[in-house]
Structure formats: structure tokens, C-alpha cells
């Protein structure tokens, strides 16, 4: 195992109100419980294809997206997109139904696990190939800038967050988009979820300069390293970046140091990651950490948090039932949606 990078800590832990704490705790638990249910459904033969789960990384999705304006700001994801979709407000029912391939899914059963979309929730989509979502996110950010600068729409202050992993930071589209975003001061957050592994390729084996946030500096852009297992730290960093983007001051690169608690996908035998490494990161479980914080700060009783977990569990069970009971796509609509004329 390569020695762990020293995890950055914020000078003082960000304050959180009871309402905010509840929202974060709910969102992270929804992500975790939803993904555990996906694993169960996959092994029971209810969903197919490649399924990439997000367990362990919840503080990133929740911390960033909860710092944005849901339904107004844009979120762009990757093949590991279930939890970004949930944080962006796509109902669990619609996400689960999509994974079941049903007509009620957020992509009408045409997309699947790696292609979740919701224009209503401004989810630009899950993009299955490495790096290809970043330019699309850049386009949404450009659009906000264009409306403000060229069309005189002062209300066009929407911000876009592009999520991607450490492996993507070696792809050309990453660098090309950092350049254009900085050049045109586009309102975008480049959020790297550095979970140390690109399937079986460890970040250090693939990357000459493993500290990704430092790459922002050559584009004249702020680059921030943050503990991706601490939702309050992620949220604080994201809030600053969002405020800067909204004020027209341009992009930020945020590197969140995190870890996936499961293999790359449910088809991954996960043989290369050491037990020591996994234990190091499992001990930093972001949900347990928030829970401890909320109790220590006397914002919640433990029983109240357990009640939230039970409610989320019920929501996910409801999503499964909804997905199971939903109709399959109509075979006569095989060609529907190829062109824009199909509504």
C-alpha cells in the first residue's frame, strides 16, 4: 500500500444547524441505503448491466449538491451516478425504476444505471465514458454565462458542478475544459472524487503528479483539496466555490479525497486493494462521522437519527415496489426519442 496522503482538515469545523444537519444526514443515508438495495437487487437478478455503486463517497455528492440551488443549478455525473441523481432531487422511485429498465424510469428505461437524466432536476446526465461529461457540463456553464453576457439576462447566475474521478484527471477533456473554463471565467465546479483507484489502476501508478488539485494553478484557477469523508468540510469548500462562480469569478477545481467501499462495479472481484487500505478508509465512514458530530453537538438524539434511517429505508423499499410494479417500455415505442419531434 502506498502511504496515505495527509488528509487536510479545515481550521474549524463548519457550523451546521439542525435543519441543515437533517438534510445532509437524510441525503447521505438515502445514497447509502439506495446503493445497498441496488446490490441486493442486482444479485437477485432484478437489474442488469454494469452497476457502479457509490458507497463511501456520499459526503462528496451531498456536500457539493446541497451547497447548490436544487432545480436551478446543473449537475453532471459519470457512470457512478445514482447518488448524484438522488442528491439533485430525482425521486428514488424514478432512479430505481430506471435501473429496472421500466417506462417510469427517469430515462424511460432507455438509459440504465450509467445514463440517468432529468431535465426537470437539471441533472445533465450520467456519462459512461471517461471525461465526456466534463465538456457537456462546461456547455451548461457556458450557457449561463452566454445568457448573462450576450442576452442581458441578469438572472442567469446558475452554477454547474461536474463530478468525475481520479482516473479522468489524466484525460485530455479534463485539461481542455479547465483551460476553457478559466479562460472564459465560466461558473463551474470541477469536482474530482479521488477514490484512489481507476478500476484496478491505482492513482499513483497512473499519474505523474497525484495531487490533482495542484493542476488548477497552471490554469490560474483556485484548486482546493478537501477531506472527502467529511461532508461539512466538502460543503464549506463547495459553498465558497459556488459563491465565486455565481459572482462571475470563474471556476474552481475541488479534489475530494475519498474511497469507494465496494469494488469498481458489482462485476469487479476487487482483488487489488489491500485489507489495510480498506480498513483505513472504512474507519472514516462519512455517514458515521456526521452522525457522531450531530449527536456530539447535541443537535440530535441518536434515536431521532435512527428514525430518519428507518424512514429512508422505507422510502427505498417503496422505490423498489414502484419499480417492480411499473410497466415495461412499450415495444411499439422502440424508435421513440431518437429525434426531437418525439415528445
Amino acid at each position: 500500500m502506498i502511504e496515505e496522503r495527509i488528509i487536510p482538515t479545515l481550521p474549524s469545523i463548519a457550523a451546521v444547524s439542525r435543519e441543515e444537519g437533517q438534510r445532509l444526514y437524510e441525503d447521505m443515508n438515502l445514497g447509502r441505503i439506495f446503493e445497498d438495495k441496488c446490490a441486493e437487487m442486482y444479485y437477485r437478478g432484478k437489474m442488469f448491466g454494469f452497476v457502479h455503486l457509490y458507497n463511501g463517497q456520499e459526503a462528496v455528492s451531498t456536500g457539493v449538491i446541497q451547497a447548490m440551488r436544487p432545480g436551478e443549478d446543473y449537475v453532471c455525473s459519470t457512470y457512478r451516478d445514482h447518488v448524484h441523481a438522488l442528491s439533485a432531487g430525482v425521486p428514488a422511485r424514478e432512479v430505481m425504476a430506471e435501473l429496472f429498465g421500466k417506462a417510469t424510469g427517469c430515462s424511460k428505461g432507455r438509459g440504465g444505471s450509467m445514463h440517468l437524466f432529468s431535465s426537470e432536476h437539471r441533472l445533465l446526465g450520467g456519462y459512461a465514458f471517461i471525461g465526456e461529461g466534463i465538456p457537456v457540463a462546461l456547455g451548461a456553464a457556458f450557457q449561463s454565462k452566454y445568457r448573462r453576457e450576450s442576452m442581458g439576462d441578469a438572472s442567469a447566475d446558475q452554477v454547474t458542478a461536474a463530478f468525475f474521478g481520479d482516473g479522468t484527471s489524466n484525460n485530455g477533456q479534463f485539461f481542455e475544459c479547465l483551460n476553457m473554463a478559466a479562460l472564459w471565467k465560466l461558473p463551474i465546479l470541477f469536482v474530482v472524487e479521488n477514490n484512489k483507484w481507476a478500476i484496478g489502476m491505482s492513482h499513483e501508478r497512473a499519474t505523474s503528479q497525484p495531487e490533482i488539485y495542484k493542476k488548477a494553478s497552471v490554469f490560474g484557477m483556485p484548486g482546493v483539496e478537501v477531506d472527502g469523508m467529511d461532508v461539512l468540510a466538502v460543503r464549506t469548500v463547495a459553498q465558497e466555490a459556488v459563491a465565486r462562480a455565481r459572482a462571475g469569478e470563474g471556476p474552481t477545481l475541488i479534489e475530494c479525497l475519498t474511497y469507494r467501499f465496494r469494488g469498481h462495479s458489482l462485476a469487479d472481484p476487487d482483488e487489488l486493494r489491500s485489507k489495510t487500505e480498506k480498513e483505513f478508509w472504512l474507519a472514516r465512514d462519512p455517514i458515521k462521522r456526521l452522525k457522531t458530530h450531530l449527536i456530539e453537538q447535541q443537535l440530535f438524539e441518536e434515536e431521532e437519527l435512527k428514525a430518519i434511517e428507518r424512514r429512508i429505508q422505507a422510502e427505498v423499499e417503496d422505490a423498489v415496489k414502484f419499480a417492480q410494479d411499473s410497466p415495461e417500455p412499450d415495444p411499439s415505442e422502440l424508435y421513440r426519442f431518437v429525434f426531437a419531434e418525439d415528445e
Partner: peptide, 10 residues
């Protein structure tokens, strides 16, 4: 590739 993707997003 990136400016084409940017146009898609726009």
C-alpha cells in the same frame, strides 16, 4: 472534442 461537447451541453 471538448468544444463539441461544450456545444452539446449548451
Amino acid at each position: 472534442n471538448s468544444f463539441t461537447g461544450m456545444a452539446v451541453g449548451a
